[in-house]
Amino acid sequence: MAGVTISRAAAAAMLDAAAAAMPSEACGLLLGAGDRIERATIAANVASDRARRFEIDPAHLFAAHRAARGGGGTILGYWHSHPSGLAEPSATDAAMADPDGRIWAIVAGRGIRWFRAVPHGALHGRFDPIEAVFDPD
């Protein structure tokens, strides 16, 4: 199970945004290099039913791609919250995810669980759980 390293600031940003968005789902991007998440962005959730689904604002996603081309952090994956559910991917998450190896982090309560979107994953045929450790800084 290949894992990731995450900055404490990125994890705190996700937890804080999820709490502030209640009862809606919060969402954003995971930026960094290699398997090190340096920053979690907070994006507007533009889904029609924000209490049960998430959709990252396309303008936020495009801006992150532009920034990455200019030397900013690479988009390593995505995060979102499950305000009234478990910190694990749903069947809807699996249907939305490309099996591209990107990281998916799911926040529920004050916890975060980590997954990689892969073909034939253990969860819903799309996700494998991975471990995350905090950056020692």
Score class of each variant (00 low, 15 high):
M1I: 12
M1H: 12
A2I: 14
G3Y: 06
V4N: 00
S7Q: 06
R8T: 03
A9S: 10
A10T: 02
A11L: 14
A13N: 11
L15H: 13
D16L: 00
A17L: 03
A19E: 06
A20E: 15
A20N: 13
A21Y: 11
M22L: 06
P23I: 03
S24M: 12
S24T: 10
S24N: 12
E25A: 04
C27V: 04
G28H: 01
G28M: 05
L30D: 08
L30I: 10
L30G: 08
L31R: 11
L31C: 02
G32Y: 09
R36P: 02
I37R: 07
T41R: 02
I42E: 04
I42C: 05
A44H: 05
N45D: 05
V46P: 10
A47Q: 11
A47R: 13
S48V: 12
S48Y: 13
S48N: 09
D49V: 13
A51C: 14
A51T: 15
R52P: 00
R53C: 10
R53M: 08
E55K: 07
E55T: 06
E55W: 02
D57H: 11
P58A: 12
A59T: 13
A59E: 12
H60A: 14
L61A: 04
L61F: 13
L61D: 04
L61W: 04
L61T: 03
L61R: 08
F62G: 05
F62M: 10
A63Q: 08
A63G: 09
A63W: 01
A64G: 01
A64M: 02
A64V: 02
A64S: 02
H65W: 05
R66E: 05
R66W: 03
A67P: 00
A67H: 00
G70N: 04
G72A: 00
G72P: 00
G72E: 00
G73H: 05
T74L: 12
T74R: 03
I75E: 05
L76C: 12
Y78C: 00
W79Y: 12
W79D: 07
H80C: 11
H80F: 15
H80K: 15
S81F: 13
H82I: 00
H82M: 03
G85D: 14
G85R: 12
E88P: 08
E88C: 11
S90N: 09
S90E: 07
A91V: 01
T92H: 02
D93C: 04
A94F: 00
A95F: 04
A97C: 02
G101D: 08
R102I: 03
R102H: 04
I103G: 06
W104V: 10
V107H: 08
V107W: 04
A108M: 12
R110K: 13
G111P: 08
G111T: 14
I112K: 07
W114T: 15
W114K: 14
W114S: 15
F115M: 07
F115E: 11
P119L: 03
P119I: 01
H120D: 13
H120Y: 13
G121S: 08
G121L: 05
A122G: 04
L123Q: 13
L123S: 05
L123D: 03
H124Q: 07
H124E: 10
G125C: 11
R126W: 11
D128K: 07
P129W: 15
P129M: 14
A132H: 07
V133T: 15
F134S: 08
D135V: 03
P136N: 01
P136I: 08
D137H: 04
